[in-house]
């Protein structure tokens, strides 16, 4: 019984069943709630949810824009800029730590300390240092994901077999070539794996910060509509966040398949 393989059809069927079960349970719950209180908005019916989606997508009377478009633009820009700077910084720091022992000795203690500070809690620091809005969010995400990513790169480079390093020298490699053409390529799949795992935390940092101080963005909208108990807008927003995270995961996996096909080969 334990670890017994099942057919692919059965596996897909079970996966679909779990989603269907969630939807059915929700339908049953909202129907029961509406029998008790027909004007309830905490567990909206499918019809109410439809209205919520329309409300999110149509041009709003007061702000003259579409909520989803404005929020997605703000949140997306912040997230991608933050991820970009974070990954770039982590690669530079991680490679430097892995290749040069003085850098390792210098940066390691600091990095392991800073890794323990919740970036959202340090929001005020970023506000003081780099100003409001875009800069602040970007700095927060970048510093939030940097310690883990830098550590991943560092450990991957650290475990790079020294035989291969010597081999590269006997093949005429310069130091720069060993670092960029050999060691970085060796660490790349691990870095991409780690970036995939860090999308979640990065979103948590950003949404939380937007909830605290934002005036546009997914976190801001969810907080506002939650206060109004407009769950018909909140649930679609949560679904969009889930869909976005899933798509990012998928895209990064595809990127890894394209850049590092070797990491998918079986031994």
């Amino acid at each position: 019984m334990i670890r017994l393989p099942i057919s692919r059809a059965a596996s897909i069927g079970l996966g679909v069943a779990s989603v269907l079960l969630l939807l059915l349970a929700y339908t049953w719950l909202s129907q029961r709630q509406h029998r008790l209180n027909p004007s309830d908005t905490t567990i909206p019916t499918w019809r109410q949810l439809g209205h919520g989606v329309v409300q999110a997508f149509e041009v709003n009377d007061r702000s003259q824009d579409r909520w989803v478009v404005a929020d997605a633009r703000a949140t997306g820009l912040r997230l991608f800029a933050g991820l970009g700077f974070g990954v770039l910084g982590a690669v530079i720091l991680g490679m430097a730590m892995g290749c040069f022992t003085p850098v390792e000795a210098f940066a390691y203690p600091l990095l392991s300390l800073l890794a323990k500070v919740p970036p959202t809690a340090a929001l005020a620091v970023f506000f003081v240092l780099v100003g409001t809005d875009m800069n602040m969010y970007v700095a927060m995400i970048a510093f939030g994901i940097l310690p883990t990513l830098a550590m991943t790169v560092f450990l991957a480079v650290k475990e790079f077999p020294e035989e291969l390093q010597y081999k590269a020298y006997t093949l005429g490699a310069s130091n720069m070539e060993v670092i960029l053409s050999i060691m970085f390529r060796y660490a790349l799949p691990r870095l991409l794996d780690s970036v995939r795992l860090m999308i979640g935390p990065a979103m948590v940092f950003l949404i939380a910060a937007e909830m605290l101080v934002g005036d546009v963005g997914f976190g801001y909208r969810i907080r506002l509509q939650s206060k109004l108990v407009n769950m018909s807008v909140v649930y679609p927003y949560l679904a969009m966040l889930a869909g976005f995270g899933y798509a990012m995961d998928f895209a990064l996996k595809a990127l890894q398949r394209w850049l590092c096909p070797w990491s998918f080969t079986k031994t």
């Binding site: 291969l164 081999k167 590269a168 093949l171 005429g172 490699a173 390529r185 060796y186 070797w262």
Partner: peptide
């Protein structure tokens, strides 16, 4: 004896990589 090849290169690339490292620059 161990770790004799670069894991991220195919056999052909592993053999060609020396020519690349030796004769060209980044």
């Amino acid at each position: 004896q161990h770790y004799s090849l670069f894991p991220f290169l195919t056999a052909e690339q592993n053999v060609a990589v020396g020519l690349m490292l030796d004769r060209t620059t980044i």
